[in-house]
């Protein structure tokens, strides 16, 4: 039994089918990278794992428990599965500290003092403890994204989903976010990330999945996908990435 099992998941928006039977297994402490062209369903898949989108068919299991379909306590699921978005989505009316402590206090019923102590510890780790009282619009994109990651980490998730979290960042701010991810990976955090950062995926991924037209077209260790792709479509996709100078 895998830690996360995605079985034949379909997702339809009206007549438009985004996911057409995705199968994927993620083991604990693995870092799984989803790559593929825009619109291939990477983000949708992540949103389905978190229950932000209901799937149309198939099932998703976390530690053997079904987490899709009727009767699932989504609020409880989300305590275990954190997600970080491309556009940060920090709460603009709250300070950094309030952003990080809101869910632990309201959802986990942690005392404010304890939540703040933990939040400060996390902020210290990313070197932003001095910004605890700052508001999101006073931070750079890279800082905001690191706060967003910390906000998800504050819930102590067992699985972290990362949805193209460096795509909206200026190039010079990408590295600070990636090095935080590298640390998390080294600590054994289980992560599924949709990304266009191929060299990063090559470096940290335990497994790389190439999504094409709503299905996992090819999956395997990064050496295989990037070094010796078996499928024609994967090769075509990667050669375009290389042409663009991204690998």
């Amino acid at each position: 039994m895998s830690f996360l099992e995605i079985r034949d998941v379909h997702k339809r928006y009206g007549d438009f089918e985004v996911l057409k039977g995705v199968n994927l297994k993620v083991e604990q402490h693995q870092v799984v990278c989803l790559i593929g062209a825009s619109g291939c369903g990477k983000s949708t898949l992540l949103r389905c794992i978190n229950g932000l989108e209901a799937i149309s068919a198939g099932e998703i299991r976390l530690e053997g428990d079904r987490i899709t379909g009727p009767g699932v306590d989504l609020d409880r699921l989300r305590r275990k599965v954190g997600i970080v978005f491309q556009s940060f989505n920090l709460f603009p009316h709250m300070s950094v500290l309030q952003n990080v402590t809101l869910a632990p206090v309201q959802v986990l019923r942690m005392s404010r003092a304890e939540a703040e102590a933990r939040a400060m510890e996390l902020l210290r780790r990313i070197g932003l403890e001095a910004k605890a009282k700052a508001y999101p619009d006073q931070l750079s994109g890279g800082q905001q994204q690191r706060v967003a990651i910390v906000r998800a980490l504050a819930m102590d998730p067992q699985l972290l989903l990362l949805d193209e979290i460096t795509s909206a960042l200026d190039p010079e701010l990408v590295s600070e976010v990636l090095s935080l991810l590298r640390e998390l990976a080294a600590e054994g955090m289980t992560m599924v990330l949709a990304t266009h950062e191929m060299s990063f995926a090559r470096e940290v991924a335990s497994k790389v999945c190439f999504l094409y037209q709503g299905v996992v077209h090819e999956e395997g260790p990064p050496e295989q996908i990037f070094g010796n792709p078996q499928q024609e479509r994967t090769r075509a996709f990667l050669s375009k990435i290389i042409e663009a100078g991204r690998l």
């Binding site: 978190n50 609020d75 989300r78 989505n89 709460f91 809101l102 869910a103 309201q106 959802v107 998800a152």
Partner: peptide, 21 residues
């Protein structure tokens, strides 16, 4: 809507999301 997504993804309920976010 991304504010709803962000709040709900942290485990906040519908009511908590309305009230705090």
């Amino acid at each position: 809507p991304s504010q709803w997504s962000a709040a709900r993804s942290l485990g906040l309920s519908f009511g908590q999301t309305l009230r705090f976010v």
